[in-house]
Design a protein around this nucleic acid. Sequence first.
DNA 1: CAGTATCCACTAGGATACTG
DNA 2: CAGTATCCTAGTGGATACTG
Lengths: 135, 135
Amino acid sequence: MRISDKNRVTHSTTECNGKLGAVGDALYVIGGKWKLRVIIALSEGNRRFNDLQRTVSGISARVLSNELKELELNGFVKRNVYTEPAVIIEYELTEYSDTLDPVLQSLINWGEMHRAKIKSDAKTAILLTDQAEIA
Amino acid sequence: MRISDKNRVTHSTTECNGKLGAVGDALYVIGGKWKLRVIIALSEGNRRFNDLQRTVSGISARVLSNELKELELNGFVKRNVYTEPAVIIEYELTEYSDTLDPVLQSLINWGEMHRAKIKSDAKTAILLTDQAEIA
DNA sequence: CAGTATCCACTAGGATACTG
DNA sequence: CAGTATCCTAGTGGATACTG
């Protein structure tokens, strides 16, 4: 079953004709905890399995394996097996994955901005704790 | 616990100083199945609880309730209670949520593009089935 | 209308161990 | 190195019913 006729029923107004359907389609393939992180790791030059696992910290081998397969299925990643000097397996991003650049970039920008904002926010418990330590 | 010192340990190279950390921070607050959809629904003018539930098709009252609370906690949504003509509860996006616009827009654009690509892809089983019907 | 309460099913994903 | 196999738990979130 593909995504196509999934959003065609029961919606009253603004649903199908637009944004909600589009983000639904997007999240369907790049949503979840790891997909974008793996893509970023690949874009930073990590191509071997264990490299990736080290770079995307916290991901288990099982999960990384699954993610790579899904990313391959969806056309973002290509798996290459070289045998020439020795057997080497490398993953690389496809050109199609480049279409995600605006998404990635805006997400990265926003994440940095948000982190900065959180840190400079004076209202959380952190400052209270600090003052308690001072006292 | 806030996001701050979550990404400070065990990473070797490109992790902390950049993109992976940033998307991590971003996904931490806007990741998941519903957050962005609820924000979009709100941006389209749906402000009452049941409106939202109807617009974001598939979401249950319980989940919508939780999502709204989290969005409020993270500063994206404000909950207003009016009592003047009658008791009316409305949700509205904050200005901070506007900072998500680039993310939303790129995601929407990509989703539309991706859907179009999937539909025009000749290689899936769909066309085979169609041909079987023709034969 | 705007939720809350309960119960329950599913599954993403962590831990650990193992293999070619 | 590049995974696979198993097992198992925590959390997401659907269904349904109920409340002020």
